[in-house]
Design a protein around this nucleic acid. Structure first.
Lengths: 197, 197
DNA sequence: TGCGACGCTAAGCAAGCGCTTAGTCAGCGT
DNA sequence: ACGCTGACTAAGCGCTTGCTTAGCGTCGCA
């Protein structure tokens, strides 16, 4: 069912992800990727048909892993505030610890083929729905004083996604602290009437 | 003092900005830029030494205009809450109405030469200081209940900058509404004790 | 009328690009 | 001993890249 990923494939995916994150899809050559994976340029094509299919494999894995993590976080609490906080925490933690992945996932969408783009866009929609759902539930129950659910969803997701852009490994800030702070910010944005923010 | 920008130069800057925003610096060819500006490929080099110098000209103008706008917004109110709101409003409004410029400004930094990057990084530091300043003042005066000034600065700026990524001209949302909503979110994030958020 | 400056183009150069081809070689079932 | 398979490489193909060169026409000014 799920296709296995060989050692060589994993090395190529890692190399491509790092290169794409640092220089962008168009700024990366297949020779760069091959060299970083310790292969000759031609070896790339034994495992992946094109450079774009490497990008797609990375983008797909990144989006699926994010969606899985957010749905798991969503189930970890039963009140909307707890769910929003847990979801934002997980999203930010993932974007910090996997910031190279997150950069490819969020900033290289335009380099995908139209057919691949469709698949990824559906996953992105599902991811957004997790945040929106928590926000809508809390607003319905009166737990949140939300100004506008659609716009607040974008504002919260923007704050989370942008972490991948500004985060620098050399920073003193621990990923957990950034994630916790982001969760508190999200609760404030949602207008949570409680003590924990 | 300030170098004048001829008609041809302006056409090149517009064409390059749109191309860089849509396909990225490395995904754009000098022939793309020339064609969009209605010139032959060689004409680009009459006005700009290299493709990178075009990027630098765009990036410099964008950052200087943002810094100018934020400092102006900062002077438009004298209480920290009013200043924070006005500054965020201006920043988001600029990122929405000029989202192609904003994409180049925020996502093509890695394509700048090291010397140009230094100049731009200083401007980015100054821009961040405007937000941080409003946040720090409001916290000192007790008007804000800010969890962590540094992290909240990043969270607010992240929300603002990311607008340029997700905003789509075909959206029904008016730029002013997005800007107003963002300003309210920023006040909430800052822990403003007042009615206007 | 002459002339240099300027904005521009047609043609093209060297380098680099994504990807292919032809072939090598170790491992393995028979 | 045999041929087959699959991972890999050296070489290179056709094309595109950023940028240059040589030259053309138009303008302001002497």
């Amino acid at each position: 069912m799920t296709e296995t990923t060989s050692d060589a494939q994993r090395r190529l995916l890692d190399a491509a992800r790092n290169s794409f994150a640092a220089r962008g899809f168009h700024g990366t050559t297949t020779r760069d990727i091959a060299a970083a994976a310790g292969m000759s340029p031609a070896a790339v094509y034994v495992h992946y048909r094109t450079k774009e299919s490497l990008l797609y494999a990375i983008s797909l894995a990144g989006h699926e892993s994010t969606l899985r993590a957010l749905r798991e976080a969503q189930r970890s609490a039963d009140d909307p505030a707890g769910r929003l906080a847990a979801t934002v925490r997980r999203l930010v933690l993932g974007h910090v610890t996997g910031h190279t992945m997150a950069r490819v996932v969020n900033y290289e969408l335009a380099a995908l083929s139209p057919e691949h783009r469709v698949v990824i866009d559906e996953l992105r929609y599902d991811i957004q729905q997790v945040i929106r759902g928590a926000l809508a539930d809390g607003t319905d129950s009166g737990e949140f004083d939300c100004v506008d659910i659609g716009m607040t969803t974008n504002a919260i997701m923007g704050m989370c996604i942008d972490v991948a852009r500004w985060y620098d490994e050399r920073d003193a800030w621990l990923p957990e602290r950034i994630a916790d702070h982001s969760a508190r910010m999200a609760l404030r944005m949602a207008g949570h009437r409680g003590r924990k923010c």
